[in-house]
Design a protein around this nucleic acid. Structure first.
Lengths: 339, 339
DNA sequence: ATGAAAGCGCTAACAA
DNA sequence: TTGTTAGCGCTTTCAT
C-alpha cells in the first residue's frame, strides 16, 4: 500500500526537534538554522513526508483553488477559456477545478455551496442561467466572476464580448453579400447571451432595411445536434432562406451537416456564419466564416478579476473584449433571385 | 461581503444545544429527537450556516474526490470518458476534478503529489507518459487507475480497448476496399498506445500480404494540427498513398482539411479512417468512417475500479472493452491502378 | 533559533 | 437522547 502515515510529528521525532520547527523548515526555511534545517530535511526524506494539504488549507482558511463551472464541457469553445484561466491561476498559485453544469440548473447552486463550504475560494461561471432565488442575496454570495455570459440585473464582475455588436457585424457582412433572408440559429432563449446575439441580428436587419421575421429565428443549445435539428425544423416548415447566422460554431457545423444531408450545399446554396471560431472551424469543409472571440484572453481576464476580488478589491466591472469577423469560405454572394 | 463566519458553535449557541447535537442533526438526523432537530435546523437557517467541508474531510481523512488527469482537455474524446467517470462518481458520492496535462510531463508527478497531500483520494490517468522514476516505486503510489492508455511493465488497474485488434480491423476494411498504399497517422511514438495501434496496422498489412513501409507512418499528437502537418510532410516527400488510417478522429479531420487544401478529395481521391468516433465525426463532410470506442463505458469502468481500489480491494486488472468499426462515407473503393 | 501550546471546525467515541 | 471531550495535522503566536 501507500507509504503514508508519515506526519509532522514523526518527522519531528526523528529529527529530534519540535513539530513547530519542522513546519517552519518547510514554510519559512530562512527562520531555521542551516544545521537544524538539514536534520529536518533528512528526516523528511527518510519518512517520505508530504505535508497534508488538507490540514494546511484548513488551518489557513484558504484553499487556493477556484472552480470553473461550464455550460457544456464538450464544447471546445470553453476549453480555450479554461486554458486562459489556468495560465494566470498557476502564476498566482491557484489550482483550478473544472466542472460541467450540463443541463442541470441546480449545478450553479451546488457549486456556490461548494465554495461556501470552503472547497474552493471562488467560482467562475460560464453558464446561461443564474438561479433567481440567489439574485436577491447578491451580497451574501461567495466570490463570483462571470465569463462569456451575462446575467441581467446582476451586478457581478464579468468578462464578455459585445455580442450585439458582433452579431450586427455578421449580418452586415451577409447583407453585403446580397443576402436578405437570413436565418438566425439562436442560443437558448431567453438567456441573456442568446438575447444579446438575437438583438444584434435584429439590429443588423434593421440597418439593412430588412423586416424581422420570427420564423427565421430558431433557438438551440449551441450543440451540433441543435444545429441539425434547427435545419430540420426549418425544412419541415418550408422556410426559405439563403443564409444562416448561427450563435455558435457547433450549431453552424450541425446545420451544414444537415443541409448536406438534405441535398443543399454550403456555400453554393446556403451561406453560413458561425460564432466563436473554435479550432475546428478552420478544418471544416468549407472552412467556416465566423466571429472570433478572444477566448484565451477572456479566461485570463476572468481569473485576474477573481484574484482581485479574492484579495479584497470590490470593483464590480464589466470588461468587454473585442471580436473579429474571420472570413473563410462558407459565405458566397447570394443569387440575384434571392435578393 | 460574505455571510460567512457562521460556524457550528454559533448554531449550537442559538439552538441552545451542544455542537455535537448540531453535527448529529446534520449528519445523522435520525439520532436526534424531532423537537431538538427543529430547533437546530431553525438556528441553521437563521445563521445561514453551511458546514465547512474542509474541516469535515480533514477530520474524516477522506476527500471523496478523485482527480482525472487528461492528455488534452481540448480533445472531445476525453470528455465522454469524463462524463462516464462523473456518472458513477456521483452515484458513489465522489466529486471529480478534471485537469489538463497538456504537454507537461511533470503534471503526472504533480498530481500524484496532490493525492499524496490528500487533496484527493485517487487519480485517474489518461496520459501517454508515466515518469520513469515512479515506475520502481509502484508500491508507494497512491490509488491510480489508467484509462484508455497503458504503460508497459506497470501493473496498474487499467481500462482500455484492444488497440491492435481495432487497428487490424481498420486496415482489413481498407484492404478489402482495394487499398494497398495505406498511410498510418500514428500517435506520439513510442508511447504504448501509439505502439499498439501501429502494431495493429502492421499486422493488418501483414495479413494482406502488403509489405511494411515506414515512410507511410507519420507520428503526431492526436490533434487536428498534427493531422494537417502530417499530410503536408507526406506531400513534401512525394509519398503516394490512396488511404489514411489515423490514430484519432482529430488527426483524420486535420488530414482531410489539408488534403482538401492541396486539391485532393476525400473519399474520391483518398480514403480516410479515423479512431475514436467523436461526435464531430458524423458531422464532417464527408462523415468519417472510424473506430468507435465505448467512451462512456471506459469512464464508468475506470471509476468503478477506482472505487474498488479505494475500498481496499487490491486486484490489478486490465479490462478490455470492445470497439466497433463504423462505416460512413470517407472510404471508397481504390481505383484499379492503385491496387 | 527553537519550543510550547492554542486552535482552525468538525466528528465520533464515550459518558451520562 | 444529549453532552463532554479528544483529536484530525498543521501553522502561528508567544515565550524562552
Amino acid at each position: 500500500m501507500q507509504s503514508d502515515a508519515s506526519n509532522i510529528r514523526q518527522v519531528a521525532a526523528i529529527a529530534g526537534v519540535s513539530i513547530a520547527t519542522v513546519s517552519r523548515t518547510l514554510q519559512h526555511p530562512e527562520l531555521v538554522k542551516a544545521e537544524t534545517r538539514e536534520k529536518v530535511l533528512a528526516a523528511v526524506r527518510q519518512t517520505n513526508f508530504v505535508s497534508n494539504a488538507q490540514a494546511r488549507t484548513f488551518r489557513q482558511q484558504a484553499t487556493k483553488a477556484v472552480i470553473v463551472l461550464v455550460r457544456d464541457i464538450g464544447n471546445p469553445f470553453y476549453l480555450e477559456i479554461y486554458k486562459g484561466i489556468d495560465e494566470v491561476a498557476r502564476e498566482a498559485g491557484f489550482r483550478v477545478l473544472l466542472s460541467d453544469a450540463r443541463d442541470d440548473d441546480a449545478q450553479v447552486q451546488q457549486h456556490i455551496e461548494m465554495v461556501r463550504q470552503k472547497q474552493a475560494d471562488g467560482l467562475i461561471l460560464m453558464v446561461g442561467h443564474f438561479p433567481a432565488e440567489l439574485t436577491e442575496k447578491i451580497d451574501q454570495l461567495p466570490p463570483l466572476v462571470i465569463a462569456s455570459e451575462a446575467f441581467p440585473g446582476l451586478d457581478l464582475p464579468t468578462v464578455k464580448v459585445d455580442n450585439a455588436q458582433a452579431s450586427r457585424q455578421a449580418i452586415a457582412y451577409l447583407v453585403n453579400e446580397g443576402h436578405r433572408r437570413i436565418v438566425h440559429l439562436a442560443g437558448p432563449l431567453p438567456e441573456q447571451l442568446a438575447l444579446e446575439r438575437l438583438e444584434g441580428y435584429r439590429a443588423g436587419l434593421r440597418e439593412a432595411g430588412i423586416s424581422y421575421n420570427d420564423k427565421l429565428v430558431v433557438p438551440g443549445d449551441y450543440s451540433i445536434e441543435a444545429g441539425r435539428s434547427a435545419v430540420r425544423r426549418l425544412r419541415e416548415a418550408d422556410t426559405e432562406f439563403s443564409a444562416i447566422f448561427a450563435a455558435s460554431d457547433q450549431m453552424a457545423i450541425g446545420a451544414i451537416s444537415e443541409l448536406r444531408r438534405l441535398g443543399q450545399k454550403v456555400p453554393e446554396d446556403i451561406s453560413v456564419v458561425g460564432f466563436d471560431d473554435i479550432i475546428l472551424a478552420d478544418a471544416m469543409d468549407p472552412p467556416l466564416t465566423t466571429i472570433r472571440q478572444p477566448r484565451r484572453e477572456i479566461g485570463r481576464q476572468a481569473m485576474s478579476m477573481m484574484i482581485a476580488r479574492l484579495s479584497g478589491e470590490t470593483a464590480r466591472t464589466v470588461v468587454e473584449l473585442p471580436t473579429e469577423l474571420v472570413p473563410r469560405e462558407s459565405v458566397r454572394r447570394a443569387r440575384p433571385l434571392d435578393s
